[in-house]
Amino acid sequence: MAHAAQPRPLRADAQRNYDRIVSAAREVFAQHGAGASLKEIARRAGTGSATLHRLFSSRRALLEAVFHDRVEELCAMAAQRAKENEPGPALFAWLRDLNAYAVASRGLAASLLRDGRDADLLEQGEGCQATIANAARELLRRAQQASAVRPGLLVEDLLALFAAISLATEHHDDDEQADRLLDIAIEGIRLKSS
């Protein structure tokens, strides 16, 4: 089986530009959402648009770079939640972690999970969405085996629910609304004992 070629490491100056662009993008996307101006990101990073496009072939690639570290942290939290809690509470706690991130990022998380121009991220085996879906899938599987959540629930349902909450609340000043909506959703997916 042929291995994909590893990308060459960036030169020191290119790495500095990469880091500045990712940092600026994190700020601009948090303020204006995933559709924010790439030109504004380049300006804030102190680079030209050509430098941004040379380092990031698409908006999606830049979104992936912005989200990558935080998504890795969220997935590590999923494993930690699974280790420290019973299956149902582990899933619900992690959904709250994911929700808190969505609130803090003002719509960035939803942009990676909803249908639209970046929807193909979910299909990529190594992308942020695939990483989140895999973490959620394992927590959901364990919760269903423990009869803590509805048996027919799919990971896609959870991610769609999360995206809907994020989209519904991203332009509101009431950050607690997302928490209230998530509480309602959790009650809806929790399996009630008879």
Rank of each mutant, 00 (worst) to 15 (best):
25 A>V: 03
26 R>T: 12
27 E>Y: 05
27 E>H: 09
27 E>P: 00
29 F>L: 10
30 A>Y: 00
30 A>L: 03
30 A>V: 07
30 A>T: 13
31 Q>K: 15
31 Q>Y: 13
31 Q>T: 13
31 Q>I: 13
34 A>K: 10
37 S>I: 11
37 S>A: 12
37 S>L: 02
38 L>N: 09
38 L>H: 12
38 L>K: 12
39 K>N: 00
39 K>Q: 01
40 E>I: 05
40 E>Y: 05
42 A>L: 08
43 R>T: 15
43 R>F: 13
43 R>D: 12
43 R>K: 14
43 R>Q: 15
44 R>I: 11
46 G>S: 01
46 G>L: 12
46 G>D: 08
47 T>F: 11
47 T>Q: 09
49 S>T: 14
49 S>H: 04
50 A>R: 08
52 L>E: 00
53 H>L: 03
55 L>K: 02
55 L>D: 01
56 F>E: 03
56 F>H: 05
56 F>N: 04
58 S>D: 04
58 S>V: 01
58 S>F: 01
58 S>Q: 03
59 R>D: 03
59 R>P: 01
59 R>G: 03
59 R>F: 01
60 R>S: 09
61 A>W: 04
63 L>F: 03
63 L>V: 00
64 E>W: 04
67 F>C: 03
67 F>G: 01
68 H>R: 07
68 H>K: 04
68 H>I: 02
68 H>P: 02
68 H>D: 06
69 D>V: 09
70 R>I: 00
72 E>W: 02
72 E>F: 05
72 E>I: 03
74 L>C: 07
75 C>F: 09
76 A>V: 07
76 A>P: 09
77 M>T: 15
77 M>F: 14
77 M>E: 15
78 A>L: 08
78 A>V: 11
79 A>F: 04
80 Q>D: 13
80 Q>W: 10
81 R>P: 08
83 K>S: 15
84 E>S: 12
84 E>Q: 15
85 N>E: 14
85 N>I: 07
86 E>A: 12
87 P>I: 13
87 P>L: 13
88 G>T: 05
90 A>N: 13
90 A>D: 14
91 L>G: 03
92 F>M: 04
92 F>V: 07
92 F>D: 00
93 A>N: 09
95 L>Q: 03
95 L>R: 00
99 N>E: 04
101 Y>M: 13
102 A>Y: 09
103 V>F: 05
104 A>W: 10
106 R>D: 15
106 R>W: 07
107 G>M: 02
110 A>G: 14
110 A>E: 15
111 S>Q: 08
111 S>A: 11
112 L>D: 01
112 L>T: 06
113 L>R: 11
113 L>D: 06
114 R>M: 15
115 D>V: 11
117 R>S: 01
118 D>N: 08
118 D>G: 00
119 A>L: 09
119 A>Q: 10
119 A>S: 11
119 A>K: 12
120 D>N: 10
121 L>W: 06
123 E>W: 11
125 G>M: 07
126 E>W: 02
126 E>Q: 00
129 Q>R: 01
132 I>P: 01
132 I>S: 01
133 A>V: 08
133 A>T: 03
133 A>K: 06
137 R>E: 11
138 E>I: 11
140 L>Y: 13
141 R>F: 15
